[in-house]
Design a protein around this nucleic acid. Sequence first.
DNA 1: GGCTGATCTGCTCATATGAGCAATGATACC
DNA 2: GGTATCATTGCTCATATGAGCAGATCAGCC
Lengths: 314, 314
Amino acid sequence: MSDNDELLSIRAAELYYEENQTQDEIGVILRLTRWKVGRLLASAKANGFIRIEIVHPRARRLPIERRLRESTGLTDAIVVSSAGVSSDSELQSRTAQAAADYLTSLRPIPRTLGISWGRTLHDVSLHLKQGWAPGVNVVQINGGVSLNQRTGTAASTAVTIAHKADGSATLLPSPAIFERLETKQAMEADRTVAGVLALARNAQAYVFSAGQADANSALVDSGYLSVAQINDLVARGAVGDVVGRYIDQNGRIVDPELNERTVGIQIDQLRRAPLTIAVISGPSKHAIARAVVRNGLCTVLVTDEDTANALLHD
Amino acid sequence: MSDNDELLSIRAAELYYEENQTQDEIGVILRLTRWKVGRLLASAKANGFIRIEIVHPRARRLPIERRLRESTGLTDAIVVSSAGVSSDSELQSRTAQAAADYLTSLRPIPRTLGISWGRTLHDVSLHLKQGWAPGVNVVQINGGVSLNQRTGTAASTAVTIAHKADGSATLLPSPAIFERLETKQAMEADRTVAGVLALARNAQAYVFSAGQADANSALVDSGYLSVAQINDLVARGAVGDVVGRYIDQNGRIVDPELNERTVGIQIDQLRRAPLTIAVISGPSKHAIARAVVRNGLCTVLVTDEDTANALLHD
DNA sequence: GGCTGATCTGCTCATATGAGCAATGATACC
DNA sequence: GGTATCATTGCTCATATGAGCAGATCAGCC
């Protein structure tokens, strides 16, 4: 298009989008036929000069969702808009809300729902509406009795989700990681614990988040791992954790010995499950989100626009 | 509107604006009639959830221009969009371009055009196209032979504008400010200089910019004033300068003695002129822009979106 | 429970717009 | 210079959309 036409298309766009004039009226002003005006507007759009944003906490980015589905083989992708977000926590909240919406609209409604725990899942539980589902058995899929603080975050997340669905919660009364393998094995041998783990393995759907591998990890906060241990994991290629287990960019367990001492379902069980919903957002989680999606650890991803774009521009 | 309708309006907007579905198709998807969809979209717009931006260096903000005209009594306002600008200088460049466009489209074409000098006016001169007007006599309206560097910026601006209009330039061969009043009076007594000043006073139109009152002022750069002098002026209420003369927020000369030693047309001559075009942009110039507009020193303002909004939110 | 005013819904109809097409004008190539 | 090719223009026609209106529905009130 000629330089002059480009300028005209901008003048036309101003009158059309900002002044709500009809193409006919614009034609009179710019001394053009209305068809020319229509074509100028179309070219302004095609050239990307017209940017339309939906500014709302619940806004999603459907085109990005579609491209994500197509390029990754996910059965579903939920991408929340980051237009107008001012803080990281606002983005987290939007993503959690979207995850809650997605769970609420799930059909068929899963009878048993396996969940992990953490800041994100807790947020999701808060955003669910009372009566979001007519009875769901919520099962904790990884250990999570916090060692030093806020004991019961994990439990309360599960209980809240179950309670709001008028269902029941099955908790996994165990730390996330044991210091000694023998203790962990003894724990798992317990009938009650074994029963919970069996239930977790047979859940119809899973919802989980993921943590980045750095000093801010929830597993460091909770006292399961030291900063030095995290640094070692990172040095060995860890990009983050899923259900308490650290993986590298190829989705492989970074430290098999540590993995053995970790309580909960295995990564491979997630990989084989027919419906696994990963809720991952925030700039620090691009790497782990990539690892989760590229290695088939989830079938549905709920994330934010920037993380989704990072996945697309690989 | 109900909370649920608000959410529906966002879903509808996603399908309409991002997926280019018709309201009919959206109705099928959301199980609504197409009229309901139309109303939801209208309410999404009315609630400000739909933001449409024209992202282009030449884009203007017509609604802001209109509000500016209405609230200030300016005969014309040109407001360039700041959507997508990454640097201050890009904003300056956009504004200069808009000023050049405005000059080019001026009707009737002024026979004599009085101009000030400075970074902004120089930019304007560069953005004008060869042949932008069929012969214009460009007159310098304030002194501006730089004392220490880039001698001739002022002159070259005038010459460029005149040359590109296939016209002539009349330069004011004088410093901006004299140290002694007597020297200035002697200078003005000179027949040539007096003639230029008379021509300047009778110009049909003026184009000028304004400087902020701080250490970055062009008058400091050029060596006419020291930082200490500027600080003194600021302490006495100066918000910036117009044609080399410092004014306060009420448009009054801050230092009459300094003003007497300054060469060029008086502020009052600008105030009385029928067509005075002020080109002022950038975050540091909000105060001086306000002083210029509120006190009737210009009839036309060319500025950027943020400055315009600052003027509107008084 | 029944009335009243206000809001909401589904519709008709006029208008705005985009798709497609023939005629025209420009451009490149022999 | 003539012609083939392509882009551009002005148009017709089908479709999408918004304004306006009558009937339905709802909330508040006695």
